[in-house]
Design a protein around this nucleic acid. Structure first.
Lengths: 200, 200
DNA sequence: CGCGATCCGTACTGAACAGTACACTACAAA
DNA sequence: TTTGTAGTGTACTGTTCAGTACGGATCGCG
């Protein structure tokens, strides 16, 4: 028991719960899922610890900057995934192959619409102001990469710009819509529709 | 001053701040803007009072159900606006006219992308679960109204369904994108692109 | 004028918030 | 076996949260 006025005197309690050890990458992935489901403001520390299984001690060990550092790490992690799996292929690989690969990667990443775009969700509320650079950079690079791939595939510059914006906007909108309607099919249909207009 | 243990004993303070009287409709509109900017979780009572100029007394007078009632009223208000200005015209008026009118109304309502879709933003985080009925209903009715208008305009049923989903998803995505990039032009371009594919 | 009814401002409450402190455990290197 | 260090659980702090209580201001109506 704890003696009043003597903090941390309560160390005669029973056997500890079994201790589980995480590493940072795992922590980031788990925290990401919580932000994705609840948004930045909705993800309170207690809900994060609850859903990730990581205690406050671990969380503040991995992210000394607190909640904002957690979100920043998560955004960086998302960005890294897209760089690896979408942006760099679009920028460097054979354009038609890279574009086809993009649609598959996107469908997989968003779990056919069951998962949400963290960056998009941050963009919609005041969280945007906190991470304006990261959020803007993510979408700017995606659009730029897609535009260049389209141009390399023979689409003229103007049409490429329009098509890239339509595609990425369309993906974001499809995530909103499929989630609002609780219907994954909406997302799949949107992806098929958007992909159909692309060179193959 | 307040005597400890004697609540409300502090009524010897100086002159009151000038009292401003609101009516409910005005309160709803002001609260709506706060939810729109900050999201449901981000809109704390103190931020709502701060930004609307309404004190807690007024807020709880108009919305005895508290924060959740405020959000419900705001959603109902948004829905009413869309019923009046978008859904009913689509359902009842000459379809091509109604569709043209829709694009103008949407551009106006979202202030060319500077304003955000409250319903869409609620759909993206856990707020969705609280208002799943309202959120789903809003998008369902919009899509259904647009589909029927397209069919009445001579588009075949299958294409109408695809086009309606693409349009409404596209609008939502354009709001996300233009806000993420901090660029209203993205929204305007998207609206023009989407409208171009419609019968006129 | 008087007097409800309506509307508003603010002190207050208990719960939940982000963040800190620190005793602790597991494991690896010496 | 000892010692260092990375990772962990939890009690604690000060702040902010949603929501309540209630005195007083204002207005409509007699």
């Amino acid at each position: 028991m704890t003696i009043p006025g003597f903090p941390h005197s309560g160390y005669d309690r029973g056997p500890r719960m079994t201790r589980v050890v995480f590493e940072r990458a795992d922590a980031v992935a788990r925290v990401a899922e919580v932000f994705r489901e609840l948004g930045y403001e909705g993800a309170t520390l207690s809900r994060i610890t609850e859903r990730t299984g990581l205690g406050k001690g671990s969380l503040y060990h991995f992210f000394p900057g607190g909640k904002e550092a957690m979100a920043a790490a998560v955004l960086a992690d998302v960005d890294a995934w897209f760089v690896e799996n979408v942006f760099r292929p679009l920028e460097e690989d054979e354009p038609r192959t890279a574009i086809a690969w993009m649609w598959a990667a996107i469908d997989d990443y968003f779990r056919s619409g069951r998962r949400i775009c963290l960056v998009g969700s941050f963009a919609l509320d005041a969280t945007r102001d906190r991470f304006a650079g990261e959020i803007g950079g993510y979408f700017r690079r995606w659009i730029a990469a897609l535009v260049r791939a389209l141009i390399r595939a023979g689409v003229d510059a103007d049409a490429a710009g329009q098509q890239a914006e339509a595609a990425i906007g369309g993906i974001q909108g499809a995530l909103v819509l499929s989630r609002a309607l609780g219907d994954e099919a909406v997302f799949s249909r949107a992806l098929r529709r958007l992909a159909a207009g692309f060179p193959r």
